[in-house]
Computed example of a mutant assay.
Amino acid sequence: MNSLLLDEYHKLMPAYERLEYAVNDMLREHIKSSSIEVNAIESRIKKEQSLIGKLERKGDKYHSIYDITDILGVRVIAFYNEDVDRIASIAEKIFDIDWANSVDKRKSHEVNSFGYNSLHYVCKIPHTSFYNQKFPEINNIYFELQIRTALQHVWSAIQHDIGYKTDIEIPDEYHRNLSRLAGVLELADNEFSRIRTAIADYRRHATKLVKSGKLEDVLLDGETFKTYLELAPFDKLNKKIAAITAAEIHATSLIHYLPVLKSLGMKTLRDVENMINDNENDAYQLALYQLGSTDIDILSSSIALQNLCIVHILKNGGGKLGLCRLFEQINGTSQSNEIMADFIFEQASKLSFMNIGKSDKS
Protein backbone atom coordinates (compact mmCIF):
# COMPACT_ATOMS: atom_id res chain seq x y z
CA MET A 1 0.00 0.00 0.00
CA ASN A 2 2.81 2.38 0.88
CA SER A 3 4.37 1.95 -2.56
CA LEU A 4 1.03 2.85 -4.17
CA LEU A 5 0.82 5.99 -2.05
CA LEU A 6 4.35 6.95 -3.05
CA ASP A 7 3.45 6.46 -6.71
CA GLU A 8 0.46 8.78 -6.26
CA TYR A 9 2.72 11.26 -4.49
CA HIS A 10 5.12 11.40 -7.44
CA LYS A 11 2.32 11.67 -10.01
CA LEU A 12 0.70 14.52 -8.08
CA MET A 13 3.92 16.45 -7.43
CA PRO A 14 3.26 19.00 -10.25
CA ALA A 15 -0.20 19.59 -8.76
CA TYR A 16 1.29 20.05 -5.27
CA GLU A 17 3.75 22.59 -6.66
CA ARG A 18 0.95 24.48 -8.42
CA LEU A 19 -1.15 24.31 -5.26
CA GLU A 20 1.71 25.72 -3.20
CA TYR A 21 2.02 28.66 -5.57
CA ALA A 22 -1.75 29.27 -5.58
CA VAL A 23 -2.11 29.15 -1.77
CA ASN A 24 0.83 31.52 -1.23
CA ASP A 25 -0.47 33.92 -3.86
CA MET A 26 -4.01 33.96 -2.43
CA LEU A 27 -2.80 34.51 1.12
CA ARG A 28 -0.41 37.32 0.16
CA GLU A 29 -3.05 39.08 -1.90
CA HIS A 30 -5.79 38.95 0.76
CA ILE A 31 -3.47 39.75 3.67
CA LYS A 32 -2.08 42.77 1.81
CA SER A 33 -5.56 44.01 0.87
CA SER A 34 -6.51 43.80 4.56
CA SER A 35 -3.47 45.99 5.47
CA ILE A 36 -2.02 43.34 7.77
CA GLU A 37 1.76 43.35 8.16
CA VAL A 38 3.21 39.87 8.57
CA ASN A 39 6.69 38.65 9.38
CA ALA A 40 6.66 35.90 6.75
CA ILE A 41 4.60 33.48 4.71
CA GLU A 42 6.42 30.15 4.41
CA SER A 43 5.58 26.88 2.72
CA ARG A 44 7.07 23.50 2.01
CA ILE A 45 6.16 20.28 0.24
CA LYS A 46 7.04 17.20 2.25
CA LYS A 47 10.15 15.47 0.92
CA GLU A 48 9.95 11.84 -0.15
CA GLN A 49 12.06 10.55 2.75
CA SER A 50 9.90 12.43 5.23
CA LEU A 51 6.76 10.94 3.67
CA ILE A 52 8.28 7.45 3.78
CA GLY A 53 8.96 7.88 7.49
CA LYS A 54 5.36 9.00 8.06
CA LEU A 55 4.00 6.02 6.13
CA GLU A 56 6.19 3.63 8.11
CA ARG A 57 4.70 5.00 11.32
CA LYS A 58 1.10 5.56 10.27
CA GLY A 59 0.68 4.02 6.81
CA ASP A 60 -2.29 1.88 7.80
CA LYS A 61 -4.36 5.06 8.33
CA TYR A 62 -4.23 6.13 4.69
CA HIS A 63 -6.11 4.63 1.76
CA SER A 64 -5.28 7.39 -0.71
CA ILE A 65 -2.70 10.15 -1.06
CA TYR A 66 -5.58 12.59 -0.55
CA ASP A 67 -5.96 11.29 3.02
CA ILE A 68 -2.56 12.74 3.92
CA THR A 69 -3.22 16.39 4.70
CA ASP A 70 0.26 17.67 5.51
CA ILE A 71 2.15 16.98 2.27
CA LEU A 72 1.80 20.71 1.65
CA GLY A 73 2.34 22.83 4.74
CA VAL A 74 1.93 26.62 4.80
CA ARG A 75 2.80 28.89 7.70
CA VAL A 76 1.86 32.54 8.21
CA ILE A 77 3.90 34.32 10.89
CA ALA A 78 2.14 37.41 12.22
CA PHE A 79 3.45 40.06 14.59
CA TYR A 80 0.45 40.25 16.94
CA ASN A 81 -2.03 37.84 18.53
CA GLU A 82 -5.02 39.71 17.13
CA ASP A 83 -3.56 39.49 13.62
CA VAL A 84 -3.56 35.70 13.95
CA ASP A 85 -7.34 35.93 14.32
CA ARG A 86 -7.64 38.33 11.38
CA ILE A 87 -5.60 36.04 9.13
CA ALA A 88 -7.66 33.07 10.31
CA SER A 89 -10.79 34.94 9.25
CA ILE A 90 -9.26 35.49 5.81
CA ALA A 91 -8.42 31.79 5.53
CA GLU A 92 -11.99 30.87 6.44
CA LYS A 93 -13.30 33.06 3.62
CA ILE A 94 -11.00 31.85 0.83
CA PHE A 95 -10.48 28.17 1.76
CA ASP A 96 -12.71 25.24 2.71
CA ILE A 97 -11.80 24.31 6.29
CA ASP A 98 -11.96 20.74 7.57
CA TRP A 99 -13.11 21.73 11.03
CA ALA A 100 -13.06 18.20 12.42
CA ASN A 101 -9.30 17.98 11.85
CA SER A 102 -8.38 21.59 12.55
CA VAL A 103 -7.25 22.69 16.00
CA ASP A 104 -6.64 25.94 17.85
CA LYS A 105 -3.67 25.09 20.05
CA ARG A 106 -3.79 28.57 21.56
CA LYS A 107 -6.56 27.30 23.82
CA SER A 108 -4.14 24.93 25.53
CA HIS A 109 -3.50 25.86 29.15
CA GLU A 110 -0.36 23.79 29.70
CA VAL A 111 2.46 25.77 31.26
CA ASN A 112 4.91 24.78 28.52
CA SER A 113 2.54 25.16 25.58
CA PHE A 114 3.62 28.63 24.39
CA GLY A 115 5.78 27.47 21.49
CA TYR A 116 2.95 25.33 20.20
CA ASN A 117 0.19 27.95 20.51
CA SER A 118 -0.51 28.04 16.81
CA LEU A 119 -3.76 27.92 14.94
CA HIS A 120 -3.78 24.85 12.68
CA TYR A 121 -6.25 24.59 9.82
CA VAL A 122 -6.67 21.69 7.41
CA CYS A 123 -7.83 23.34 4.19
CA LYS A 124 -8.44 22.94 0.50
CA ILE A 125 -9.13 25.49 -2.22
CA PRO A 126 -12.75 25.61 -3.45
CA HIS A 127 -13.48 25.81 -7.18
CA THR A 128 -15.04 29.23 -6.62
CA SER A 129 -11.71 30.67 -5.39
CA PHE A 130 -9.30 28.98 -7.80
CA TYR A 131 -9.46 26.45 -10.63
CA ASN A 132 -6.81 25.26 -13.05
CA GLN A 133 -7.89 23.09 -15.98
CA LYS A 134 -4.42 21.57 -16.25
CA PHE A 135 -4.49 20.51 -12.58
CA PRO A 136 -8.15 19.90 -11.63
CA GLU A 137 -7.04 17.65 -8.76
CA ILE A 138 -5.79 20.75 -6.90
CA ASN A 139 -9.28 21.33 -5.53
CA ASN A 140 -9.27 17.86 -3.92
CA ILE A 141 -5.91 18.19 -2.14
CA TYR A 142 -5.94 19.15 1.52
CA PHE A 143 -3.05 21.14 2.97
CA GLU A 144 -2.17 22.35 6.45
CA LEU A 145 -2.15 26.04 7.31
CA GLN A 146 -0.44 27.16 10.50
CA ILE A 147 -0.84 30.71 11.80
CA ARG A 148 1.25 31.93 14.73
CA THR A 149 3.01 35.00 16.10
CA ALA A 150 6.68 35.74 15.49
CA LEU A 151 7.56 35.08 19.14
CA GLN A 152 5.74 31.75 19.08
CA HIS A 153 7.62 30.85 15.92
CA VAL A 154 11.02 31.79 17.35
CA TRP A 155 10.32 29.86 20.55
CA SER A 156 9.23 26.78 18.63
CA ALA A 157 12.38 26.96 16.48
CA ILE A 158 14.59 27.27 19.57
CA GLN A 159 12.88 24.32 21.24
CA HIS A 160 13.40 22.26 18.11
CA ASP A 161 17.05 23.32 17.91
CA ILE A 162 17.85 22.27 21.47
CA GLY A 163 15.86 19.03 21.15
CA TYR A 164 13.44 19.90 23.94
CA LYS A 165 10.63 17.66 22.66
CA THR A 166 12.73 14.57 21.91
CA ASP A 167 12.51 11.25 23.71
CA ILE A 168 15.64 12.08 25.69
CA GLU A 169 14.88 12.94 29.30
CA ILE A 170 16.27 16.24 30.53
CA PRO A 171 16.62 17.33 34.18
CA ASP A 172 13.71 19.14 35.81
CA GLU A 173 15.93 22.20 36.24
CA TYR A 174 15.95 22.75 32.47
CA HIS A 175 12.22 22.11 32.22
CA ARG A 176 11.63 24.81 34.83
CA ASN A 177 13.96 27.28 33.10
CA LEU A 178 12.32 26.72 29.74
CA SER A 179 8.86 27.08 31.26
CA ARG A 180 9.86 30.40 32.84
CA LEU A 181 11.19 31.66 29.52
CA ALA A 182 8.02 30.52 27.77
CA GLY A 183 6.01 32.51 30.32
CA VAL A 184 8.11 35.62 29.70
CA LEU A 185 7.64 35.33 25.94
CA GLU A 186 3.91 34.79 26.31
CA LEU A 187 3.70 37.92 28.46
CA ALA A 188 5.75 39.80 25.85
CA ASP A 189 3.42 38.63 23.09
CA ASN A 190 0.40 39.90 25.02
CA GLU A 191 2.16 43.13 25.99
CA PHE A 192 3.06 43.96 22.39
CA SER A 193 -0.61 43.65 21.49
CA ARG A 194 -1.66 45.77 24.46
CA ILE A 195 0.86 48.50 23.62
CA ARG A 196 -0.18 48.56 19.97
CA THR A 197 -3.82 48.95 20.99
CA ALA A 198 -2.92 51.71 23.46
CA ILE A 199 -0.92 53.58 20.80
CA ALA A 200 -3.79 53.28 18.32
CA ASP A 201 -6.16 54.67 20.98
CA TYR A 202 -3.73 57.53 21.66
CA ARG A 203 -3.53 58.38 17.96
CA ARG A 204 -7.31 58.40 17.60
CA HIS A 205 -7.70 60.56 20.71
CA ALA A 206 -4.96 62.97 19.61
CA THR A 207 -6.45 63.27 16.12
CA LYS A 208 -9.84 64.06 17.65
CA LEU A 209 -8.30 66.76 19.89
CA VAL A 210 -6.39 68.33 16.98
CA LYS A 211 -9.46 68.50 14.77
CA SER A 212 -11.54 69.94 17.60
CA GLY A 213 -8.94 72.66 18.23
CA LYS A 214 -7.99 71.55 21.76
CA LEU A 215 -4.31 71.90 20.96
CA GLU A 216 -3.10 72.58 24.50
CA ASP A 217 -3.90 68.94 25.36
CA VAL A 218 -1.92 67.52 22.44
CA LEU A 219 1.77 66.76 22.90
CA LEU A 220 3.97 67.67 19.95
CA ASP A 221 5.22 64.45 18.35
CA GLY A 222 5.53 62.91 14.90
CA GLU A 223 1.98 61.59 14.80
CA THR A 224 0.25 64.70 16.15
CA PHE A 225 2.34 67.08 14.01
CA LYS A 226 1.45 65.06 10.91
CA THR A 227 -2.25 65.36 11.80
CA TYR A 228 -1.82 69.08 12.52
CA LEU A 229 -0.22 69.64 9.12
CA GLU A 230 -3.32 68.11 7.51
CA LEU A 231 -5.17 71.18 8.79
CA ALA A 232 -2.85 73.35 6.65
CA PRO A 233 -1.96 75.80 9.48
CA PHE A 234 0.67 77.63 7.38
CA ASP A 235 -1.36 77.97 4.17
CA LYS A 236 -2.74 81.40 5.01
CA LEU A 237 0.72 82.90 5.53
CA ASN A 238 2.14 81.00 2.54
CA LYS A 239 -0.49 82.49 0.24
CA LYS A 240 0.07 85.98 1.65
CA ILE A 241 3.82 85.68 1.05
CA ALA A 242 3.33 84.22 -2.44
CA ALA A 243 1.10 87.16 -3.35
CA ILE A 244 4.10 89.51 -2.97
CA THR A 245 5.45 88.39 -6.34
CA ALA A 246 2.41 86.42 -7.59
CA ALA A 247 4.50 83.29 -7.08
CA GLU A 248 3.40 79.70 -7.34
CA ILE A 249 3.69 77.62 -4.18
CA HIS A 250 5.56 74.33 -4.59
CA ALA A 251 4.30 71.80 -2.03
CA THR A 252 6.97 70.15 0.12
CA SER A 253 6.88 68.08 3.30
CA LEU A 254 7.18 70.01 6.56
CA ILE A 255 7.54 66.98 8.83
CA HIS A 256 11.32 67.54 9.06
CA TYR A 257 10.58 70.77 10.97
CA LEU A 258 9.42 68.72 13.97
CA PRO A 259 12.88 68.60 15.62
CA VAL A 260 13.28 72.32 14.85
CA LEU A 261 10.09 73.16 16.72
CA LYS A 262 11.06 70.91 19.62
CA SER A 263 14.49 72.55 19.83
CA LEU A 264 12.71 75.89 20.08
CA GLY A 265 11.04 74.65 23.26
CA MET A 266 7.62 73.77 21.88
CA LYS A 267 5.97 70.90 23.71
CA THR A 268 2.36 71.02 22.54
CA LEU A 269 0.54 71.96 19.36
CA ARG A 270 -0.80 74.98 21.22
CA ASP A 271 2.81 76.21 21.49
CA VAL A 272 3.09 75.95 17.69
CA GLU A 273 -0.21 77.73 17.24
CA ASN A 274 0.93 80.51 19.59
CA MET A 275 4.16 80.89 17.63
CA ILE A 276 2.11 81.41 14.46
CA ASN A 277 -0.20 83.95 16.06
CA ASP A 278 2.62 85.85 17.76
CA ASN A 279 4.94 86.02 14.74
CA GLU A 280 2.72 85.89 11.64
CA ASN A 281 2.86 89.63 10.83
CA ASP A 282 6.60 89.89 11.44
CA ALA A 283 7.27 86.75 9.34
CA TYR A 284 5.31 88.38 6.51
CA GLN A 285 7.27 91.64 6.88
CA LEU A 286 10.53 89.67 6.66
CA ALA A 287 9.31 87.93 3.49
CA LEU A 288 8.19 91.28 2.05
CA TYR A 289 11.67 92.73 2.64
CA GLN A 290 13.29 89.63 1.08
CA LEU A 291 11.02 89.32 -1.97
CA GLY A 292 9.62 92.78 -2.62
CA SER A 293 12.28 93.77 -5.15
CA THR A 294 12.50 90.34 -6.85
CA ASP A 295 10.52 88.54 -9.53
CA ILE A 296 10.67 85.08 -7.94
CA ASP A 297 7.78 83.05 -9.33
CA ILE A 298 8.11 79.76 -7.37
CA LEU A 299 8.26 79.45 -3.58
CA SER A 300 8.49 76.40 -1.37
CA SER A 301 5.54 75.77 0.96
CA SER A 302 8.09 75.79 3.80
CA ILE A 303 8.64 79.55 3.42
CA ALA A 304 6.02 80.50 6.01
CA LEU A 305 7.21 78.06 8.66
CA GLN A 306 10.86 78.91 8.06
CA ASN A 307 10.23 82.64 8.45
CA LEU A 308 8.12 82.02 11.56
CA CYS A 309 11.03 80.11 13.10
CA ILE A 310 13.49 82.84 12.11
CA VAL A 311 11.36 85.56 13.73
CA HIS A 312 10.77 83.44 16.84
CA ILE A 313 14.52 82.84 17.26
CA LEU A 314 15.42 86.51 16.80
CA LYS A 315 12.68 87.78 19.10
CA ASN A 316 13.88 85.42 21.81
CA GLY A 317 17.51 86.54 21.59
CA GLY A 318 18.86 83.62 19.55
CA GLY A 319 20.80 85.93 17.25
CA LYS A 320 23.07 84.72 14.44
CA LEU A 321 24.02 81.56 16.34
CA GLY A 322 20.38 80.59 16.71
CA LEU A 323 19.79 81.14 12.98
CA CYS A 324 22.85 79.10 12.11
CA ARG A 325 21.54 76.21 14.22
CA LEU A 326 18.18 76.48 12.49
CA PHE A 327 19.74 76.20 9.03
CA GLU A 328 21.88 73.27 10.17
CA GLN A 329 18.76 71.44 11.31
CA ILE A 330 16.99 72.19 8.03
CA ASN A 331 19.85 71.79 5.55
CA GLY A 332 22.47 69.75 7.38
CA THR A 333 26.00 70.85 8.22
CA SER A 334 27.42 73.31 5.69
CA GLN A 335 29.64 76.37 5.65
CA SER A 336 26.87 78.22 3.82
CA ASN A 337 24.66 78.08 6.94
CA GLU A 338 26.75 80.71 8.70
CA ILE A 339 26.73 82.92 5.60
CA MET A 340 22.96 82.56 5.33
CA ALA A 341 22.53 83.31 9.05
CA ASP A 342 24.57 86.52 8.71
CA PHE A 343 22.56 87.57 5.66
CA ILE A 344 19.16 86.92 7.27
CA PHE A 345 20.21 88.63 10.50
CA GLU A 346 21.27 91.72 8.55
CA GLN A 347 17.92 91.81 6.73
CA ALA A 348 15.90 91.32 9.92
CA SER A 349 17.86 93.95 11.82
CA LYS A 350 16.24 96.63 9.62
CA LEU A 351 12.70 95.55 10.55
CA SER A 352 10.52 96.89 13.34
CA PHE A 353 10.31 93.73 15.47
CA MET A 354 14.11 93.70 15.89
CA ASN A 355 14.26 97.39 16.76
CA ILE A 356 11.44 97.03 19.27
CA GLY A 357 13.41 94.26 20.87
CA LYS A 358 16.45 96.52 21.15
CA SER A 359 14.48 99.32 22.70
CA ASP A 360 12.94 96.92 25.19
CA LYS A 361 16.40 95.75 26.27
CA SER A 362 17.54 99.33 26.69
Rank of each mutant, 00 (worst) to 15 (best):
Q159V: 01
I141G: 00
Y131V: 04
R86I: 15
I147A: 05
F135K: 05
I162D: 01
A150Q: 14
L119R: 13
N101E: 04
K134N: 12
I87P: 08
F95K: 07
K124S: 15
E144P: 00
R106H: 11
Y164P: 01
S89G: 13
A100M: 10
T128K: 10
E92D: 11
Q133H: 13
W99A: 08
E92S: 08
N117C: 09
A150K: 11
H160W: 03
Q159T: 01
S108I: 05
N132R: 08
L151I: 06
F79T: 02
D104N: 11
P126M: 08
I94S: 07
Y131C: 04
I158F: 03
S129A: 13
V122K: 04
A88C: 12
N140R: 14
E137P: 05
F114P: 02
S118L: 07
N117T: 12
R75N: 00
S118Q: 09
D83W: 03
T128L: 04
N132S: 09
Y80T: 01
Q133W: 11
V74K: 02
V154A: 02
G163P: 12
I141W: 08
Y131E: 08
Y142N: 13
R86E: 08
D96V: 15
T128N: 07
A100N: 02
Y142E: 09
K134G: 10
I141E: 00
G163Q: 06
I90V: 07
V76H: 01
N132A: 11
D83A: 09
H153R: 06
F79Y: 04
F79C: 00
V103T: 07
I125Q: 03
E144L: 00
A100S: 01
H160R: 07
T149Y: 01
D83T: 05
Q133V: 15
A88K: 15
Y142T: 09
V74H: 01
D96I: 15
C123T: 05
P126E: 07
K134Q: 14
N117G: 12
T166M: 08
P136H: 09
Q152S: 05
D98K: 11
K105M: 12
Y164Q: 05
Q159I: 00
K165N: 06
D167E: 15
Y121S: 02
N117E: 14
D96E: 13
T166K: 05
I97V: 14
L151E: 12
E137R: 04
K93F: 15
F79N: 00
Y131H: 15
S102L: 01
E137F: 06
L119M: 10
I94T: 10
F130Y: 15
F135P: 03
D85S: 07
E137V: 11
S108V: 08
H120N: 12
D96G: 04
S156A: 10
H127I: 14
V74C: 04
V84T: 14
I97Y: 14
P126W: 15
D85L: 14
A78D: 02
F114M: 06
L151M: 09
N117Q: 14
H120A: 12
H153G: 00
F79P: 00
T128I: 09
Q146I: 03
I141Q: 01
S129T: 13
Q159G: 03
V122P: 02
S89C: 08
A100T: 06
V84I: 15
S108N: 15
I162Y: 06
H160M: 04
G73N: 03
F143P: 11
D96P: 00
E137D: 10
N132D: 15
F130E: 08
L151Y: 13
Y142G: 09
I158R: 02
E144S: 00
K165H: 08
D85Q: 13
H160S: 04
